[in-house]
C-alpha cells in the first residue's frame, strides 16, 4: 500500500487518467474532487460493503437458524 501526504489544493494522478484533488480539509473530513473517465466506477467504500451484506442476506435461509431466532425473540 502506498501512503503519501498531500496538502489542500494538491492532487495526485492515478494511471495517467484519474486525478484526485484535495479541495477542502475539515476537522474530521476532507472534500475530494475526482476526475476520471466515465467507465471508471467510483463508490464510497461503505456503500460497497452495504451491498455485499445485502447480497448475503438475500441468499437461501437455514430453517433451523430461523427457528432458533424465533425462540430467541420469544424469550425477550
Amino acid at each position: 500500500m502506498l501512503v503519501l501526504q498531500r496538502k489542500k489544493n494538491q492532487s495526485l494522478v492515478i494511471n495517467g487518467n484519474v486525478t484526485v484533488s484535495i479541495l477542502e480539509i475539515g476537522s474530521d473530513w476532507i472534500k475530494l474532487a475526482i476526475e476520471a473517465p466515465k467507465d471508471v466506477k467510483i463508490l464510497r467504500a461503505e456503500l460497497m460493503e452495504a451491498a455485499e451484506v445485502n447480497q448475503e442476506a438475500a441468499k437461501e435461509l437455514n430453517t433451523e437458524s430461523v427457528n432458533a431466532l424465533k425462540n430467541l425473540v420469544r424469550k425477550k
Binding site: E46, A50, V53, N54, S65, L69
Partner: peptide
C-alpha cells in the same frame, strides 16, 4: 435491520449500520 441468517444462530448477524 437486515439479518444474514447462516447455518447456526451463533453465526448469524444483523446489520445495525444500514
Amino acid at each position: 435491520c437486515i439479518c444474514v441468517i447462516n447455518e447456526t444462530l451463533e453465526d448469524s448477524t444483523i446489520n445495525l449500520k444500514c
